[in-house]
Write a protein that binds this DNA or RNA. Structure first.
Lengths: 141, 141
DNA sequence: CTCAATGCAAAAGGTTTGCACGCTT
DNA sequence: AAGCGTGCAAACCTTTTGCATTGAG
């Protein structure tokens, strides 16, 4: 075999990151996650947070979206196939959405213009119900 | 008046950047544009390239798209309203596209989930016809 | 015991800013 | 002359990498 599957190890740090990700259930930046971990007393290096997130993304268990500012947000991903996200710009709450019609549209437009090997990125940002009303904003995820 | 419109000045540098942008007619990164300018003998600082691009974007004469890697691509923008782009990942050739149906879809999905103040980013990447065939790739824009 | 995982510090990459000088108006 | 524009260097921010140490299996 060329790939004996390196067998990922169960480290405390990964556990902490995973646990946090499941709790927040929303989009968070690596730095944000790192900060939250420290706040709850978990000793995890920023590097490890990044590496764990990258690992999850590669494995398809999480995915990343890039903010207009360039920072990326990560979140665990339940849905299997290709899909997109609706993210609250205030609290990070995320709704996974599928848009078969949109996927098709993107491919069609691209192919109609002679483009091949088409990929697309679609991100929808908004303010969720919980963050709309009061002066709230930072705590519904 | 609170905004006497600072009146932008006609500097050689801006002219060079504008000229180049019009010639390449495709998406290019600031660094790429800077390099191209130097190659053609135009003395323009990278800082100025960034500032000029930012100015154009703010004025709505150009727009920026962020690559998966975080780098942003700029291009002059003819179309007036909101629209998206189909970009060749090899040469940067850009096709401006409008997708009324998609816009609507995005808004609907967001509102259906209780989100307000909805914004979205849609970028389609592919390989254009000119860059598909041969081992080519770096020179069709 | 072995090798992946960790973490610190440093590097990298792209973009922005402080500040003195120059050019447009 | 007045003030925006320029450009260099340094600052910034997020993400990545080098390397010695730690710890899971």
């Amino acid at each position: 075999m060329v790939k004996p599957t390196p067998a990922p190890r169960n480290t405390r740090q990964r556990g902490e990151v995973m646990a946090l990700l499941q709790e927040v259930d929303g989009a968070r930046s690596a730095q944000q996650l790192h900060m939250l971990l420290r706040q709850r007393g978990a000793k995890v290096g920023l590097t490890t947070v990044y590496r764990t997130l990258q690992m999850l993304v590669d494995a398809g268990d999480a995915d990343a979206a890039r903010l207009p500012g360039g920072e990326q947000l990560f979140r665990l991903c339940s849905r299997d196939g290709h899909h997109h996200h609706l993210v609250c710009r205030d609290c990070g709450k995320t709704v996974e959405i599928a848009g078969p019609a949109v996927e098709r549209w993107a491919d069609e437009v691209a192919e109609a213009n002679g483009f091949t090997d088409v990929r697309h990125t679609i991100e929808i940002f908004g303010t969720c119900r919980d963050c709309t009303g009061p002066g709230s904003g930072v705590a519904c995820g």
